[in-house]
Amino acid sequence: MIESRNNIRTFGSGSPTLLFSHGFGCDQSMWEPVANRLADSFRIVLFDHVGAGRSDLSAYDKAKYASLDGYARDVVEVARSIDTPDLVFVGHSVSAMIGALAAIEAPDLFKQLIMVGPSPRYIDDGDYSGGFDEQQIEELLEFLDNNHLGWSAAMGPAIMGNPDRPELGERLTNSFCSTDPDIARDFARATFFSDNRADLSAVPVPTLVLQCSEDIIAPVEVGKYVAENVPDSSFVQLEATGHCPNLSAPDEVAQAIRHYVRS
């Protein structure tokens, strides 16, 4: 049930098991380049958050996924469904915080956390600089309203009403990142209006922060803030630029993960 709800895919072999979690925007394909590079020495688990990729859209619950806690509950369930004593969670972007919440909820399930481009709060607040103000987040929501990125409204009800007919969920053009516009909007709100600064000090497992330069979504200062506030943490500055090093610099990211997990 959880397997199909979150479209879980497992491959590779070795220990520990790496559980990759995608952020706001696309789906598990974001992690494929990195995961493929690590599959020779680790067991790999990829999944889609509910509402993204090929997850079961009929499992989407507006109230549950209005905050990151709903997604974190799912991560705990996914982690529990993987039967291994050595599980390392690797979260990109907002999934870094989703992983932190999951680890706080169920510390025994996770051995380490790896956060790629994390941000505990995107909106500026007093001395804290998250990089955005509320007006700018509203602009993003407007962009999402104007761009459905290959999502066809007619598909929504068809997929929702026919979970037993997966052929109706076949991908369309631009479909890697296509999401029901309403769900994309909800996820954008849950992501960009989140504030998990207070949770950082409660992260119970060793944590690695991987930080890009010129990342407008999660600037360097924000990544450092995370590393400073998580008790047992390391900070690694990547050569890569932008917000998606898992796609733009998969070699470097895979290397950094391998090094941290093996050391």
């Binding site: 706001f24 696309c26 993003l140 890697f176 979504i217 796609l247």
Partner: peptide, 11 residues
């Protein structure tokens, strides 16, 4: 900008 980073560049 956010959409470019989160959606378009990955796509």
């Amino acid at each position: 900008r956010i959409a470019y980073e989160t959606h378009l560049a990955p796509l």
